[in-house]
Design a binder for these strands. Structure first.
Lengths: 107, 107
DNA sequence: GCTCATGCATCGATCATCGGTATATACCGA
DNA sequence: TCGGTATATACCGATGATCGATGCATGAGC
């Protein structure tokens, strides 16, 4: 799972959001680092919906514009949780191995 | 940075390794989860060397076979460290947001 | 001596994901 | 009427990963 995908799932974890809401949430979640483009977002949403990771929650028309809300599924929650575990494990591995320099300048 | 790239850098953090050594190290580091194919590995190595993230350390001929050892650079170390930070931050975000269900029973 | 398994590197084709840009629509304010 | 904003969609290209096949040299078995 790549970062945009991951952050999309994060953004939906507490409550459903519509496309443009997700873009804003992801930007905030990532401290401004990740700015999703529509292309990235909607392709990912379609893919994740196809996978059963998320689903369309409802559609609203607000001021003449369609808003499609997406909701994370139980399966998506599980995927997100195990992805978080993977990230933690990888980070720990990196920290550990960055610390263990064998025979630094010896040789 | 994707996982294969990340794990390759992890594998090289303590000491230089040659290609097939990296494959083994990555498999071990990831608990058997990630098994690099030669194609993935050498393309990544070329790319990372081009970027200055790692460099060829030395070449040896062992039993008639060439072994090319790769070494992580200072730049690569920095990249790996900041990647680890990113992973930690993302994992924390996910944990946090998986816990905060609004109006779930919270109120 | 021949054949086969093994360790090592290389190459090519394909696919998935992401990034960027442009477009259609509908509202709003100047 | 025009331009900006909000929303979704479509298309295209770049990057990186995956898979599979190949080349090559050695040592082991027969």
């Amino acid at each position: 799972m790549h970062e945009p995908t991951f952050l999309i799932l994060c953004s939906l974890a507490p409550a459903p959001l519509h496309g443009y809401g997700i873009i804003g949430a992801v930007e905030e979640l990532s401290g401004g680092r990740v700015r999703l483009r529509p292309g990235t977002l909607y392709t990912a949403l379609d893919r994740l919906a196809r996978d059963g990771t998320l689903a369309v929650d409802r559609e609203e028309v607000v001021e003449g514009r369609l808003r499609r809300y997406y909701r994370i599924t139980a399966e998506g929650r599980n995927a997100l949780a195990s992805e978080a575990s993977r990230l933690e494990a990888n980070a720990a591995t990196a920290r550990h191995r960055l610390r263990s320099r064998p025979a630094g300048g010896t040789a």
